[in-house]
Design a protein around this nucleic acid. Sequence first.
RNA 1: GCCCCCAUCGUCUAGCGGCCCAGGACAUAGCCCUCUCAAGGCUAAGACCGGGGUUCGAGUCCCCGUGGGGGCACCA
Length: 498
Amino acid sequence: MTQSTNPARVRFAPSPTGYLHIGGARTALYDYLLAKQTEGSFILRIEDTDQKRYVADSEKDLMRSLRWLGLEWDEGPDKGGPHAPYRQSKRKAIYQDHAEKLVEKGQAYYCFCSPERLDRIREEQIARGENPRYDQKCRNLDPDESARRAENGEPHVIRFKSPHQGTTTAVDLLRGEITVDNQTLDDIVLIKSNGLAVYHLAAMVDDHLMDITHVIRGAEWLPTFPVHKLIYDAFGWEEPIWVHLSLLLKPDGKGKLSKRDMEEARQKGQPIFVKDMEEFGYLPETVNNWLALMGWSYDDRTEFFPMEDLIGKFSLEKLNPSPAAINFSKLDHFNGLHIRQLDVDDFAQRIKPYFEREGYEVDEEILPDVAAAIQTRTGKLTEVTDMAGFFFEEDVDLVPKRIINKNLSASQAAYAAQRMSHLFQEVPVITQDTAEKPLRELADELDLKAGQLFGLLREALTGQKVSPPLFDIISILGKETVIERLDEAAMTLRDMAE
RNA sequence: GCCCCCAUCGUCUAGCGGCCCAGGACAUAGCCCUCUCAAGGCUAAGACCGGGGUUCGAGUCCCCGUGGGGGCACCA
């Protein structure tokens, strides 16, 4: 292991503005993997400093989704911890104190400019083709006077006093040094006029106070990264290791997913939100495996990773800084792989809810056998009803037009079904060994291809064109049911012949 | 417009100067297996963005283009 063996303290810090999507889930997964690998801590922190964007259900969805993936946190808003509270809206005073400290040190200042003025100067700057940023009107106000005005209740924000000269260099683990010219830096707002902190302050303060060792976040933070480093410096704090994850792009690779893209993808059956994964029939282990590989790799051939392997083999150094397009067909492929390595009883329990939600009454007696029969042919758990629903139905609906064609008349089919029924009645125990040969002989006798006869049998037993292997079906259904369904089919076909 | 990041098959990627006429996976096509459908096996097609350097030698290092992406809020 090339990883540092010191216990890492990592945090997943989403803002509750919507359902947990795959981008967030991937970040949380990497956090979790690093924490587990180093026997450190995985912390959940809710960044709800923007009351306007708050979505009520999202916190519940977030926790439910993380737990579904198996990414249980050690500290968080619902379970507390040594650095509680873990919800930023409850930490308002902490941020204010810290901002005041910066003001005292001359690293931040009160700004009394109105939003209207800010809008105006921004428009003017854009019109002039300049980079829009604060014109620093309040930057050089007399500190005592500023303090007085603020105390008198004049509306104000607190801004960070960015340096003007020189350059700032911040170090990202994946990209190395990122240097910006300080002239391009803006004096960002730290505390809003309503007294709440913005991300730039709140996240830095919390990460420091919570002893976060590795900040793993999306690459959309790269442009403000140098300012974040400057904020750490202003406080005199030691920086964490910064890791900016590559962005996840739309499947066509053109741009990152927007809200609308997410909805469109959902309509196509492509799960964008973690909550859709279960609904669409994916296993949590599939999702973790798939997500882990979007931006991370282990070597030049291993791709199948159960969670334990992910924990053991993950390393930050192998993270890829370039953006990655989402590949849903690979998700399907991984789901198949993980389904096939489940043991049968486990698989049986996983598919049970998918039958039930389609209204089937699952017979626990035969469920394990059904599971065994369909396991290798299940790509998504939602497919099991189409493949094996007939096991849990009283009768099947025959679709004669799939049976009867120019090579097989209704009366021929009816006769063949009847003959198979008789044949099975004579065989004490129907298995592939006892029944296949007689069936093939029957096909010869009736001048049918074996495939035709098997096809007829399949339709009679399942009402489907596609099914698990016939002899599996027969042994699960039992001789009695098999004969019943065959007789019924014969009857239906005979009626059609007349 | 300004700033930042990225750049190998359609997609995800391996490659950290010679082991690469570039390897794997998904998807695609063909074949084999076969009672259907899968699974599995085999095979095919498919990429180092361009130009300059550095070097005995560059997919790998540097520079410039180009392309893609991201950011420029009292959102995160």
